[in-house]
Write a protein that binds this DNA or RNA. Structure first.
Lengths: 180, 180
DNA sequence: GTCTATAAAGCGATAGAC
DNA sequence: GTCTATCGCTTTATAGAC
């Protein structure tokens, strides 16, 4: 087991337990590694593990979501693919958005650049794709913000109601509204 | 100091630190009461404190938001007042929604009824107000869900970007969209 | 009703054997 | 690179004085 292989396992543990709830005992069980091994990979401890997880999430979104949006054409296929990717990624709202969850707590201040950068680049990339469809810059930015916020809110509400379909339904309406 | 007076102080502590981050030391400092006094009011400890806080939040929304929406007329003033109340309550996105934050973590399962009930009644009340404007039931429910989710997402995004104006701007657009 | 003292358990982190 | 043992601290919760 090398360091990079542990990151997705740590990510699921942080998503399931939250930053504070993911104790070293939990992280140890999630990876199958002793505490000593984890500290060998991450000398900075839990904070370095969470930073690596956020970087991994950012990298995935950069490749699969942000970059395709930035190079989008004038048809809406890039935005359509974003909705498909995101619906998959969040597993119909059962999997939370870690940068979003961190934004609501103290973690926001500790991981400020990672959290703000993730949302800033998501919104900017989606705004680019909307501009490529001929929408004016200011309106594109506003709509992009509303869609990203709508996705985050859909995770919250669908989880609160324990109704994963609510996430899928909300994303379908966001998609219809933005492609109209 | 009596039990009811501690609840708003505990609420701010839970909002600022999260459920797990709000240790008894934090809650003691927030209320100015020793641990012994807190256990005197809340024999069930931290979990009973959080339950009381959620009940207090629910009660405030029931009075100030849900009930007015249910008895709304055919003009949009009740919905307008909801947006005013909510913008104030969340302090332009600097104050988080505790039921929303709980929905993203393990707390959702511990406080399942309080969390789901809060969102269920908010959505149902807003849907009632939309139906009073002549909107069909299914569409009213969908729009109400989108507005409530949009508010939750606006809190997440505005906090992530550390831009409180983003919350106010998002709510203004949600208001314009729903009253159109 | 409020406090201090304390118990028992869990925490993050480190040391050192292998 | 992985482990176990352990340190020092904080946690929740209780006991008991006032």
């Amino acid at each position: 087991m090398d360091r990079t292989a542990t990151v997705p396992l740590l990510a699921e543990a942080f998503r399931a337990h939250g930053y504070q709830g993911a104790s070293l005992a939990v992280l140890s069980a999630a990876t199958g590694l002793g505490k000593g091994s984890l500290y060998n990979f991450f000398p900075g401890g839990k904070e370095e593990m969470a930073a690596a997880v956020l970087a991994g999430i950012d990298s995935w979104f950069e490749t699969n979501v942000f970059a395709p949006l930035r190079t989008a054409g004038s048809d809406g296929t890039a935005i359509d693919r974003m909705f498909d990717s995101v619906t998959d990624y969040f597993r119909s709202g059962e999997r939370i958005c870690l940068p979003g969850a961190f934004a609501l707590g103290r973690e926001r201040d500790v991981f400020a650049d990672a959290v703000s950068g993730y949302f800033e680049r998501w919104i900017a990339a989606l705004a680019d794709a909307l501009e490529a469809q001929g929408i004016a810059a200011a309106r594109a930015r506003a709509s992009a913000t509303d869609v990203v916020a709508g996705i985050q809110g859909a995770i919250v509400v669908s989880r609160a109601l324990s109704r994963p379909e609510a996430f899928v339904d909300s994303l379908a309406r966001l998609r219809a509204a933005i492609t109209a």
